[in-house]
Design a protein around this nucleic acid. Structure first.
Lengths: 224, 224
DNA sequence: CGGCATCCATTTTGATACTG
DNA sequence: CAGTATCAAAATGGATGCCG
């Protein structure tokens, strides 16, 4: 991207000069839900070697999109976090995710890796701010050994890796159910009914979830 | 793409499997303002050879994002257009553009190519639907030998390559002015005042332009 | 664990020449 | 003009070894 710019005076091209390289936007996607350690990043991104990961992180640092931090005690281990500029890539990443929900998802393939956090981000891309007007709630999701929480505050939303401080609702689910949520072949409500998931906490806020996250209808690309 | 997928069951990753290859999103950007011929695409994208362009177009066709068409008479020459799925990448491309307007633009570099259409798309990414409530207008822009028009219809917007049928406002401008609009170092109003641009048509709708397109404040990445 | 360096097989790309 | 064929240069991925 430095040596290999598009050399176009165009906002899209300049952005892709910075984040258009292979793996870069997926790295941003990972960091969008909070700081991560080097090893965890690599574990999430199968096929990305330590060398390239190191190079990409340096690039993001050099360009002011991410920075290396030291996790607060008692961890004290190094990690990577997005800067303000990096955080603001969120809408672009979510727009790509939203397109994918409609035009690229479908059944999970046998050779595809999976993390619950990816589904959480997919859901976030389906968030309907209008439906969340006046809602203030924290939802915690526990899927296998992954924990996420979603903060909804009157049309604004944030999804973060890790447990919530004071969740209003806690949902515990099978990874299997989350795969099917990603596929669009079930809903959280159905999962709660048939035992793939269980929930505790405020029942009214739990019901709200289905209204605030509306998956786009599946489109048929001829080529897929 | 096919051979080199990320192999992740994730909406973002699946999208990038389809359009994450070099040049692909820029090709979509070009087609977002209407069908284009092979040669015109190549002329817009310096550095992209005919071989790769051909491969990318075939890929987009195979994946159902674009299709080869024959331009209506009297042209009758082959061209490429987006399908519905391709068109729907618009929000993602515009989100990237919007980020670039804020974090990546600045002065045009000496080695950067430039087309007025890129600035038009940048402007479009700064469109504020609320400010366009109740507005119904067609603006035509003539910059050098490039002509574009923008259709605003009560919060909805479309930007298209080529002249408008019945423009309410026609703006004629220097390429120089458009470069400075991209840089954020001037405004259309200033250009009209100092002679870099001239306009004819409905004066009230012309004034509206400045309200409907609000450029985000420039951010400072440490690394740039 | 975190992260850089090195070597090597495979892909992608960029540039150019060439054909209908 | 539209598009294929060809080849050299660069990017990637995978393995491995090293050091704090």
């Amino acid at each position: 991207m430095d040596q290999r710019s598009y050399h176009q005076f165009c906002a899209t091209a300049r952005t892709l000069d910075l984040v258009g390289d292979r793996w870069t936007l997926l790295l941003v996607r990972e960091l969008l839900t909070g700081p991560r350690r080097f090893g965890d990043l690599q574990a999430s991104l199968r096929g990305l070697g330590t060398g390239l990961l190191s190079a990409r992180l340096k690039h993001l640092e050099r360009e002011g999109l991410a920075r290396k931090i030291t996790l607060p005690p008692p961890a004290r281990t190094p990690a990577y976090a997005l800067t303000e500029a990096g955080e603001e890539l969120g809408p672009a990443v979510l727009a790509l995710a939203r397109w994918g929900m409609r035009w690229a998802m479908g059944e999970r393939r046998a050779d595809e890796t999976f993390h619950a956090g990816w589904v959480v981000l997919g859901l976030r891309s389906c968030f309907v701010p209008q439906a969340a007007a006046g809602v203030r709630a924290t939802y915690e999701f526990r899927v296998g050994d992954e924990v996420f929480h979603i903060d909804v505050d009157d049309g604004a939303i944030d999804t973060v890796h890790g447990p919530a401080r004071r969740p209003d609702v806690v949902v515990t689910a099978d990874e299997e159910l989350f795969v099917r949520l990603g596929e669009g072949s079930t809903t959280l409500a159905a999962g709660l009914a048939d035992g793939g998931a269980s929930a505790s906490g405020d029942a009214a806020l739990l019901r709200k979830l289905g209204e605030m996250f509306v998956r786009p209808p599946m489109g048929d690309r001829l080529g897929a």
